[in-house]
Structures are given as C-alpha cells and as structure tokens.
Design a protein around this nucleic acid. Structure first.
Length: 437
RNA sequence: GGAGAGAUGGCAGAGCGGUCGAAUGCGGCGGUCUUGAAAACCGUUGUCCCAAAAGGACCGGGGGUUCGAAUCCCUCUCUCUCCGCCA
C-alpha cells in the first residue's frame, strides 16, 4: 500500500532530522496525541535510519569503485589489452553481486522505515494544550450573539420538510441516506451561500480554483488522507480514483513537486467543491438531518506559507472564517483543539462551531489547521529561501465554510413564531428573497 | 472504443552504448556599457542523498541486457495526433 511513495519520500514524512535532534520532545508530543507506542516507533525509526546510512555509505563507495573499474575496461579495450580487460570484467562482476546485495538490504530497511514513519502523526505545536477528548479543547473565543425564543424551536429537518426545501426521502430514492435533495429556496440558499463565501474569499485575496473532484492515489497521499483514511473516501475501482473528501486535497496538490520562490509566498487559493465522505460507522442522532452527510458542499481556503509566519497566517485564516460567521449573525465559538482531538496530520487546529438552537448543541462548521511541513514533505513542496536553499513550506487550510451545518443553524436560529425563516441580510442580494415560508 | 507517435533540465530542443548531468536557443540571475532603460557583450543558472569533503543517485515509473545505458530490450503509466462517439 502506497509503497510507490516510500522510496522517494523516505527522507520526508516527518523530517527524520527533527526526530533525531529532538527525539524526547517529539516522542512526548506525539504521545500526547494519543499514540501510545510513540517511543518504540521513534527509536525504531532512528535505528533504521542509522542502518540506512551505514548501508548507503558502503553501497556508494562500492558503486564509486565499480564505476572506476568499468571505465578502465573501455580504455584497456581501446589499447588492445584484452587480458587485463577481462580481469577487470571479473572484478566488476564480483562488485556487482555485492552491490546487488546491498541494494536489497537498503530496500528492506527503507520499506521497514517507511512502515514505521507512516504511523507517526504530526507533532502538535507547543501552544496546543494536552488533552484526550473534545472536553479538553479550549474555548478561545465566543461571540455574544444569543438566540432566544418565546416558543419551542423546531429542529431544522422538520423546518426543511415543512417548507419543502430539503427532501430526505427523495435523496434516499435517488442515491441513499446522507444524500439529501435541495429544492426551490433550499437549492437557491445553497447557491447563495457558495457565492457569498467565494466572493468573500476573493476579497480576502484568495484565487479561486475549480479543481477536479476525483483524485488519484498520489494526491491522496500528498495531503495525508492516504494511507490512513483509505476507508473514509469513496473509490472508483475501475479508474482508481478517489472522490475528494474536501477541496483541500486537489487544491493543495497543485503544489506537489513544486519549488516556489519565496517572493511567491504566501500562495492563497480557495475553491468550492462538493465533498464526499463515507462516514462508515456513524449512526443515530449524529447523522440526523444535515448533521452528517455523505455529500455536502464546502468552500475551502488554502495557503502555502513561509514557515516563518505560518502561525500568523493561521490566525488570519481564523479571522476570515469568523468574519463570515459574524456577517451571517450566527452564534459561534472558536475552539483550540487539544492534542488528543486533533487530526493525524495537523500541528495546530482551531474549530469553529455554530450554535444550533433547536438541537441545543454546537455544530462544527469549520476546521482551520496548520500542517507545518507534514503535507509539504509528502508533497515535496518547497521554496527557495534567501540563501537559495530549498526548504519545505508550511501548508494551511480551513473550511470557509461547510454548508450543511450552517444551513441547519440558519434554519433553526432564524425561525419565527409563524414558522417562517428569515434570511440573513448579507445573503439577501444572493438569494433574492428575505424569508422562507 | 480503433490506429499511430512520443515522454530529456523553468520552457523549447539535440543527444554514435563509454569522454553526458547532458549541446544549443529562450527565459532567470549577476556584470560591462548607458543619465536611466533597451540592445549588445561577458559570466552564471537542476534536484536529491551523505554533518561535510570525497562520493553517489536522478534524462516519465519499474525491470532486463552489458564490464559500462539518456542511448538497446521488456513492461507499466501518462501525453499528443487521426478516426469514432458525445456535453
């Protein structure tokens, strides 16, 4: 699985240099992420790397010697010294078998090393609090919009049904559960939100991209979905394509195998795509209504940054997302995820959650992350620094925003006593109506 | 889907099995000249491994032939052209 990448990416993954130089620290932080065997894996990785260097150094001097002898053969033959040439040939033959053997050993070590490396998640940034569950996340900000009712608010799936703007049954008929059909004002609202989000991203300096929504294996590997989350993506067997779980994958993979000039940084791209997630194992209230779908729409913002200021950019991206939520007049909070709740690939993540008035719970609508070099190493995305040396970039991305839960929250929070739903001011130019029902 | 052609450095484009990490042109960077710019001329200009030097790897991917392969063979992938089909 994914061994295609092993050979060339072996230096990358988590940079081996960092693991070697700060093994205690890295071990501790990775353990905090919930990987119990961090210590064993890391010591194994270092042991294998030592081994790799040893073999490599032997192999290379042998190859050097072999190259030298091979060259003399040509010269000897030219001079007509047949016997000496033959002697040299036997010598290279011996060297060849040794080289072959060392190459095989190297291969074994590289594969073993790769197998260990892929088990290692990104190292949480120092500012990430240690914790195990979502309870340990830190509320970094909460706005002061409150929603109150003098009647009992109705959950969004009922509202949607009542106004005939989302048809769950029809989605089941056409495809299956988790693929709702948006109708009439429901469909227009979707389009309005997408348009609004894209326009705001454009204003914030992001270049709009319309990427493919199928990706190949290399792309899945580049952003870290593969090999870990293989089962979470839909897969087209016949063509070996995956359906994207997020626009992050195609938009970030634009920069796979690319060396940028430092003046080009930061690169800011955004894009709207449908997103597909198998969500195997989800059930019950979590998947009710729009809470968790197999297909949903999302506008994503992606930045490729100089490591020097990637954390300032992370804040900038959070502010962009919060600005959107502000203009939609939604109650929301910003969470700093603890070590245990972060994704495998992330070094630091903020989640944005909106309040869902009828369900009386917070719904995640955005996740903004700095991956530092985790993705860059797999993508081999680098930039040339002042000394003209190539260096891995930092990649960041965030949802800006994911639609379904925004819609859920809008419907529930903006419902009126008469059952109608008010459209937020900012969206009205996009929808062309100010109320549903 | 059928037939053919091809894959070389940022791009274009050479490359008898050894002297090719690779000609040449363009672009980029530095310089001379100029009040400045252009033109012209000179120089420079791939990535990766190894702490570094020495050294090694890389001419789409993988395998093979050979003392020696960018150059020969096999295979995979991709791209292009023509035909068919079609938004």
């Amino acid at each position: 699985m994914c061994t295609f990448a092993a050979r060339k990416h072996i230096k990358y993954m988590l940079e081996i240099q960092r693991i070697r130089n700060h093994s205690a620290k890295v071990t501790e932080r990775i353990q905090a992420k919930g990987l119990k065997q961090a210590e064993e894996i890391i010591s194994e990785v270092i042991r294998l790397d030592d081994k790799r260097k040893e073999i490599l150094s032997n192999l290379e001097s042998l190859r050097a010697e072999n190259n030298r002898v091979a060259k003399t053969v040509g010269a000897l033959l030219a001079q007509g010294k047949k016997e000496e040439a033959e002697a040299a040939k036997t010598q290279t033959a011996e060297q060849k078998t040794q080289i072959k053997q060392l190459e095989e050993e190297l291969e074994t070590v590289l594969t073993a090393s790769y197998n260990q490396m892929v088990l290692l998640p990104n190292v949480p940034h120092d500012s990430v609090p240690v914790g195990k569950t979502p309870e340990d996340n830190v509320v970094a900000f909460q706005n002061d919009i409150k929603v109150t009712f003098d009647f009992t608010p109705v959950p969004h799936w009922e509202l949607a049904l009542k106004h005939d703007i989302i048809d769950w049954e029809l989605g089941v008929k056409i495809t299956g559960a988790g693929f709702p059909v948006y109708k009439g004002k429901g469909a227009i609202l979707q389009r309005a939100l997408i348009q609004f989000f894209l326009n705001e991203a454009n204003k914030a300096g992001y270049t709009e991209i319309q990427p493919p929504i199928f990706i190949n294996r290399q792309s899945g590997f580049g952003t870290g979905q593969l090999p870990d989350k293989d089962g979470q993506m839909y897969y087209i067997n016949e063509d070996e394509f995956y359906l994207i779980p997020t626009a992050e994958v195609p938009i970030t993979n634009i920069y796979r195998d690319v060396i940028l000039e430092s003046r080009e940084l930061p690169v800011k791209n955004c894009g709207y795509t449908p997103c597909f997630r198998r969500e195997a194992g989800s059930y019950g209230a979590h998947v009710r209504g729009l809470n968790r779908l197999h297909q949903f729409d999302k506008v994503e913002v992606v930045q490729i940054a100089n490591p020097e200021n990637s954390y300032a950019i992370l804040e900038e991206m959070c502010n962009h997302v919060m600005g959107l939520l502000d203009s939609l007049r939604l109650p929301y909070r910003k969470l700093l995820l603890c070590t245990g709740d972060m994704s495998f690939a992330s070094a630091k993540t903020f989640d944005m959650e909106v309040w869902s008035a009828a369900q009386e719970k917070w719904l995640e609508v955005s996740s903004v992350s700095n991956f530092e070099t985790f993705q860059a190493s797999r993508l081999k995305c680098r930039f040339r620094d002042e000394d003209k040396k190539t260096q891995l970039v930092h990649t960041l991305n965030g949802s800006a925003l994911a639609l379904p839960r925004i819609v859920a929250s809008l419907l529930e929070n903006n419902q009126q006593a008469d059952g109608s739903i008010l459209i937020p001011e900012v969206l009205r130019p996009y929808t062309g109506f100010d109320r549903i029902g």
